[in-house]
C-alpha cells in the first residue's frame, strides 16, 4: 500500500491501481453523506479533482494521484456513503485506474512514512 499527502491510499491490483482514502482522512472528515465518483473511461491527470466527498459539515475532493484512465468506480458508495467511515481501506475504495508506468507509485509514501506524516 502507498499513501499520498492528500491522505489517499493506493493499492496495486494486477495492472490496476485501486484508490481510496485513509482511515485518518475518514475520521477527520466525519460522517460522509455524499460521494461523487469520476466518469468511467476518462483520462485524468495527476492532481485533477476527480471525486467529491461531503460530510455533514464540509466538502472535500479526491485528487487523481497519477496520470491514467479510470476503469472502474465503486457504485456502492453512491447509495451508502457511510461505507467511507465504516471501512475506508477495504470496501470503500473509490476507483480503479490504469496507469502507464507502475514505477510512478514509488514516489509515494509507504505505511511507515505515512504514519510519520500524520504524526
Amino acid at each position: 500500500m502507498k499513501y499520498t499527502e492528500e491522505h489517499e491510499w493506493l493499492r496495486v491490483e494486477g495492472d490496476l491501481v485501486v484508490v481510496g482514502i485513509t482511515e485518518h482522512a475518514a475520521e477527520q472528515l466525519g460522517d460522509v453523506v455524499f460521494v461523487e465518483l469520476p466518469e468511467l473511461e476518462t483520462q485524468v491527470a495527476k492532481g485533477d479533482e476527480i471525486c467529491v466527498i461531503e460530510s455533514v459539515k464540509a466538502a472535500s475532493d479526491i485528487l487523481a494521484p497519477l496520470d491514467g484512465e479510470i476503469v472502474e468506480t465503486n457504485e456502492a458508495l453512491i447509495d451508502n456513503p457511510a461505507l467511507v467511515n465504516e471501512d475506508p481501506t477495504g470496501d470503500a475504495w473509490f476507483f480503479k485506474m490504469k496507469i502507464a508506468d507502475m514505477a510512478e507509485l514509488d514516489s509515494y509514501m509507504d505505511e511507515d512514512a505515512y504514519k510519520d506524516f500524520i504524526g
Binding site: G30, D31, V33, S55, V56, K57
Partner: peptide
C-alpha cells in the same frame, strides 16, 4: 468543540 467522539451525525 466542533464535535466529540460520537460525531456530528450521532450528536445530532
Amino acid at each position: 468543540p466542533v464535535q466529540y467522539p460520537m460525531g456530528v451525525m450521532g450528536e445530532h
